[in-house]
């Protein structure tokens, strides 16, 4: 069996998720023993339009990007959304809460009307094309990415946690951030990162998006107990949890 060919494409994002692949260090050698990278602009000058697996990084924010994405989908057997920007829209969703013309004026001033500065609202990749697998997180977890790639090559659906971060946080024996008077999104955010932020003594800001059937009602209810308000919770959820869905099947 020949190795599946993998191509990586970046859209609107910080490219930190591809960097996590570079950060696999020696393990990249293992990765390229399983898949054959044929296009990866940030790391390679080689380019091929023949590939089996397309990895998409970043959110879709312009009509021409949607076109490009559809062409990629047509050419690929599998499509992976890499990182929160691609999988859920990520931090770029904040843009959707703005009046775009107004926002462009804030950033570009009087030049905002120049046509090349146009941008649409943020879309996650699955709002444009069919996505086979999502690698969540801002940035992604290298081990989870590696696991998903191995599953894909093996022909198995990866088992990504459907439960909230609290599970992993308890396993790390962290003190609950609510005991420190912080609003932590751990109880409604999908696990899989090993409770990275609470383990560094700060709140989870929900970069992996909401868990399956998150109890947002309970999260709002609980604010009173910790002397916060539901709008405090919503402010924090606006960063990464404004799109309440993720279907991993």
């Amino acid at each position: 069996m020949s190795k599946p060919r993998l191509a990586l494409f970046d859209f609107a994002c910080c490219e930190g998720c591809q960097l996590q692949i570079v950060n696999m260090e020696e393990e990249i050698l293992d990765l390229i023993s399983v898949v054959h990278p044929v296009q990866w602009r940030e790391a390679m000058s080689e380019q091929s339009e023949e590939y089996d697996i397309a990895v998409i990084e970043g959110s879709i924010t312009r009509p021409e990007d949607e076109e490009r994405l559809r062409r990629i989908r047509e050419r690929s057997r599998f499509l992976i959304a890499l990182g929160s920007c691609a999988a859920t829209g990520g931090i770029n969703n904040l843009k959707n809460q703005l009046n775009l013309k107004e926002a462009q004026r804030i950033v570009y001033g009087d030049a905002a009307d120049m046509p090349h500065l146009d941008t649409d609202s943020t879309k996650s990749v699955d709002e444009v094309v069919l996505v086979d697998f999502k690698v969540l997180g801002c940035p992604i977890d290298q081990q989870e990415f590696a696991y998903i790639v191995r599953c894909l090559v093996l022909g198995k659906t990866p088992e990504i946690p459907t439960y909230p971060i609290c599970v992993e946080c308890k396993l790390q024996e962290n003190t609950c951030r609510y005991e420190h008077g912080e609003i932590c999104l751990g109880p409604i955010t999908r696990a899989g990162c090993g409770a990275r932020c609470p383990s560094q003594a700060t709140w989870c800001f929900g970069c992996r998006g909401l868990s399956d059937e998150p109890n947002v009602y309970a999260a709002r209810e609980v604010m009173d107990k910790y002397r916060k308000t539901p709008s405090d919770l919503e402010e924090r959820m606006a960063l990464f949890c404004s799109k309440p869905r993720y279907d991993h099947e």
Partner: peptide, 28 residues
Amino acid sequence: RCFSCGSCNLVCPTCYCFDVQDDLNWDM
């Protein structure tokens, strides 16, 4: 008001349920 977060399970000294999963090495 339950988050279905399993915290009560995980910290319980008498809870012992487990899940079983496979993972392949890079040699596949």
